[in-house]
Design a binder for these strands. Structure first.
Lengths: 232, 232
DNA sequence: AAGATCTGTCTACGACGTAGACAATACGCG
DNA sequence: CGCGTATTGTCTACGTCGTAGACAGATCTT
């Protein structure tokens, strides 16, 4: 009989390089990106790190805090340069960056959108408030009165989030089956009740998200600049 | 010794008027409105109806289907008149109606926003596709080419959803404590990192959601009408 | 080296979604 | 009216979840 194996059967991937909040959160993000929000359970996350699930509680208060941390982590990927004097160009670039960020982490988007709904502004993870603060800085530095800056921000961010949600809703993961699945799905709709939607199948199939966002931003920025201008 | 009580100790509220999909779903909606999404568990819903939780599965496939049903129920409250020749007025009214609907059912909003993200267009509950179809009808009847109608729809609905999310994020339930809580929350923010946000506390406190939505819609509609016009 | 603090592990509990077997009821048809 | 069939309601049970609390090992301070 062979001697008892030392308890080293764990998932092969990585031994134990000391835990930390950052390690936990980025494992969480990786898991969400790879398998979706539902896969992010404390037990699974522990397993992914080769650790006892309870150990995670040394670094995060509870599961909700992990979700907040993931939101924060993702939003930190967004760069904003509040000193840029060309506020319109800056807002346009941020919009495209955020859109791409969302496409890169589609499973995180529900988090970004949903969690603030249940947390009053002042109690949110600071990382998620940074974009707000920086965009306000951008606008105020560009000459907007603070209250106007807030209005511009709201219209801008509102449209931006709306667009991203819209685009992601029509987004289907597997680009191969994209068209097939789409048509298949649409075909299921009763022809009598949804004639226009069904007729639009081909157009739906090629959605130029980037282009539509850009157009929308153009409309919005020029409209906003018309009624609220810097240094007025 | 008194005779054995017939098994009639249940929660006083309503006896047993036969179950149905509609009854189940509206109980679910009531529960969500009253206590939030997390309170909507199969067991709790069964209890609310004075029934065994497993009975619900005769009317809905699983919990996810209940959530879909609730979305559908809420969206059915939205009236759209696709024959209205004044498409801009119609879109504006729908926007305000949807906003009020969202304020009436704030706990359902995450559902409206989130569920389509994980369901391809063609597989969604039909009730949630009705607004899309009807708005397309409205625009096409007004003279837009179908593909243009889709673009208008996307920009419009995107902005609309974005606005609603934005407004709800700043919305705090208890109107009494509203300002206090808000300031309290903001006060927690490090003054060095969030100067503008903190300075805007008073402006944040009175958010005219209706007014901002209306302005945004105006900007968007006029911008859209400029580059895509009906009967072009 | 000794004590204190920090990190990791284990066990256990209550709540959840839901499969599957059964009982009660309602309904169609003679 | 009664009987067989289909529908509706109930119960038990399983596996998974989040996480409280007790404890053990590791690391740091002096």
């Amino acid at each position: 009989m062979p001697p008892v194996e030392p308890p080293e059967p764990p998932p092969a991937t990585a031994s134990k390089p000391r835990l930390s909040r950052e390690v936990v959160l980025s494992a969480a993000l990786a898991l969400v990106d790879a398998e979706g929000l539902d896969a992010l359970t404390m037990r699974r996350l522990g397993q992914e790190l080769g650790r006892d699930p309870m150990g995670l509680y040394r670094y995060t208060a509870n599961r909700a805090a992990v979700l907040d941390g993931v939101s924060e982590l993702v939003l930190n990927e967004l760069a904003i340069f509040p000193e840029d004097p060309d506020w319109q160009a800056q807002l346009r670039r941020i919009a495209h960056d955020l859109r791409e960020l969302a496409l890169r982490h589609p499973n995180v988007v529900p988090l970004l959108v949903t969690r603030p709904l249940s947390t009053p502004l002042g109690l949110r993870p600071l990382g998620t408030l940074r974009p707000l603060e920086q965009i306000l800085a951008l606008l105020i530095d560009a000459g907007f009165a603070p209250a106007d800056a807030l209005h511009v921000y709201r219209a801008y961010y509102g449209y931006l989030y709306g667009h991203i949600l819209n685009e992601l809703q029509e987004f289907i993961v597997d680009p191969e089956e994209n068209e097939a699945l789409l048509r298949l799905g649409l075909h299921r709709l009763p022809a009598k009740d949804f004639p226009r939607l069904r007729a639009l199948a081909p157009v739906l199939a090629d959605y130029d998200g980037r282009g539509e966002l850009d157009e929308g931003i153009t409309i919005l920025l020029s409209g906003l600049a018309e009624r609220l201008s810097p240094r007025a």
